[in-house]
Design a protein around this nucleic acid. Structure first.
Lengths: 229, 229
DNA sequence: TCTTGTTAGATTGTCGACAATCTGCTTGTC
DNA sequence: GACAAGCAGATTGTCGACAATCTAACAAGA
């Protein structure tokens, strides 16, 4: 009998689809930080009753990208400069750990997948698709977490990713500039294929810092604007 | 005008109360790993409709202590030896980071709170209240996370804590022995008050390892039993 | 005997309506 | 004009009922 691995079939609940829709809207910045989500309006737009919508929102609240105040409403989280600093400093620590855990497990499949994701980033960059560029870059970065073989670490990373993607999307949207054409991930990929783990860890830390500076200045701008209101 | 800090009033939605009830039941081991949560039965017992119950369950799924399969049901997560290893290794990394972040912020209020929580552990130990002992020990441990002033880190810790508390409760329940009478946290507290940060970090790592060994052997036992079925 | 189709029961997913709560406006009083 | 009380509209929280799906038992056929 031929050995064939079937992947689990897709979740076909409205709830799951709503979660995906809402998450996408938030992470791409279509729903802005602080914005209130009106249950009736959204449920009518999606042609869905409020029950699955509310359950979906509850999930996203736990995921950390929505926040809920009883009898007042559910809102997209606000983004402060401190949030970004917090997320990034934690990300640095987790990166180091993930690389350490992944290091001895690297094999050909890992390298292939690394190249594949790297290629996806380059393609999105060439296509000037900023949203997809952010998405693919985070997926490239997430490989070390998937390979670390630590479910709790992976969950943590995925939660963090949501925020990071949201921050980057906001930033991109705000400055509205063409994306950088040069490939900033080349060194990262090369180091992950190499034999010097500490160098890879060091680079992860520094590389992150790079985009981080820009993000931060954007966030500080946000706060200045907010304080004027 | 006298300066007075009012704490936010309690959430008075059924959903929030259900979350608290269910979480407690799971973390104390009253609901066993793998057990299915029948919505109708629970909603009748709680005298609540299924809507808020389901929303509560969705939250706990995202919190990582329940798992849900569409049209099949929602279950308490299974605990494997690997889960425990994963949680602990991540905990070690986070501990180091939390101590580092907290270190420069330590002040008298920190030391007072540290003593207060330490005292709570000792009291629970004297009272032979194992559940409360686990709870207070984790709260003592969590102080460095609250003081680190990093909201994402704190969230991550709280998610991790849920699992740790569950693991410990299961362990305690299984061996059903009297709790250790001697005070294992004395050194930890002393080091956190001292001036050698690296010593504190080192101890956190080693101290965790201690209880860890016992937990692990328990988990391995669990898996042997499971594989026989 | 093994496989496949059918069916009944139980359980989860979804819906529309009602209750509780909040917000902003209006009104009345000083 | 300032302020408090109260009302109306909108929105969230909760409920009970129905629809969709799964499970397990049973029957029919190879």
């Amino acid at each position: 009998m031929a050995k064939l691995d079937f992947s689990p079939i897709a979740d076909t609940t409205r709830r799951a689809e709503i979660v995906a829709l809402l998450r996408r809207a938030i992470l791409t910045g279509q729903l802005e930080p602080g914005q209130k989500l009106n249950e009736l309006r959204i449920s009518e737009q999606m042609r869905v009753s409020r029950a699955p919508l509310r359950e979906a929102m509850r999930e996203l609240v736990q995921e950390g990208i929505l926040t809920s105040i009883p009898y007042a409403g559910t809102f997209v989280i606000d983004v402060t400069a401190k949030d970004i600093v917090d997320a990034y400093s934690l990300n640095q620590v987790l990166d180091e750990f993930a690389i350490e855990q992944t290091w001895p497990q690297r094999d050909q499949r890992f390298f292939d997948e690394l190249d594949r994701r790297h290629e996806a980033v380059k393609q999105a960059t060439r296509a000037l698709d900023t949203t997809r560029q952010i998405e693919t870059a985070l997926q490239l970065h997430g490989l070390i977490y998937e390979w670390a073989d630590n479910s709790v670490l992976l969950e943590t990373w995925q939660r963090l990713t949501s925020r990071l993607q949201m921050y980057f999307a906001l930033h991109q949207r705000a400055r509205n500039e063409p994306v950088p054409a040069e490939d900033v991930h080349e060194t990262y990929v090369t180091l992950l294929k190499g034999s010097d783990m500490h160098a890879a860890q060091r680079h992860a830390r520094e590389h992150i810092d790079l985009d981080f500076e820009e993000l931060l200045s954007y966030a500080r701008g946000l706060e200045k604007r907010a304080s004027k209101n």
